[in-house]
Design a protein around this nucleic acid. Sequence first.
DNA 1: CATTGTAACTTGCAAAAAGCAAGTTAAAGG
DNA 2: CCTTTAACTTGCTTTTTGCAAGTTACAATG
Lengths: 131, 131
Amino acid sequence: MSNKKLTDGLPSRRSACPIAAALDLVGDKWSLLLIRDIGLFERHRNKDFQNAAETMPSNILADRLKRMTAYGLLEKRRYEERPPRYEYHLTRQGRELLPVLRELASWSERNLVGVKIPRRVKARAGGTGSD
Amino acid sequence: MSNKKLTDGLPSRRSACPIAAALDLVGDKWSLLLIRDIGLFERHRNKDFQNAAETMPSNILADRLKRMTAYGLLEKRRYEERPPRYEYHLTRQGRELLPVLRELASWSERNLVGVKIPRRVKARAGGTGSD
DNA sequence: CATTGTAACTTGCAAAAAGCAAGTTAAAGG
DNA sequence: CCTTTAACTTGCTTTTTGCAAGTTACAATG
């Protein structure tokens, strides 16, 4: 009955930079994975999202669906009336984010396959000449 | 002398999905903006980053530079010896993220120019047919 | 017609990350 | 010595995320 924090103040732009503006909308931990689920993995329903490999918390899931619907990236459709059930689809704007995801995936496959995440880092100077 | 939290446990992959893996590395609020600063805006030094339009907190900045250097996305170079001064450059891996940023910027320019962020949202069902 | 089941959320509280301001370090220059 | 500057670091507050349990609207079962 009372939306409080997460759904109230939607983010304002940090700057005029288009990259920053895009990240203000979808630059959090989960939004782009939801776009991936819907646009690339044919997942459309609440339960489908919960069955994704990443197990996103249900409150965050609900919030992101709401936010991205409000932004116009997603569209919420009732697919069943009498027990009211819903599914989410990408709008044109949402669909046009897929090339970003494909670039990310491509980068990941080229550069990250089997990347070993270091445990403890000191990050001191003195370039290793990785160029 | 004692790194504590932010620099210690580097993120582990949420899943085997390459998109998720990429976002585990750079899917936070600031990392991609730093890649942008270095790769697109010719900013390389601590102070340059602080002069960016977005005013990132200095502790977060330090942490992200350290993390991304540890990941192999950035390279730290000493450009002056006797007062020790450093600058950061993209490695090949870091540079190959730029197409992702270009896609993001392109999406933003096509879909977000002058987007009015709504103030308060209820996000109820009943599609508006935005497709 | 009470009981169980299920999708789609919502709520409360704890944990983690981000943000802010002030402090530190290593030197140069006066 | 005293001030200045780049490049961080530290302590503390605020915001976001995560977890677990609860709620709502029905359908189906017995």
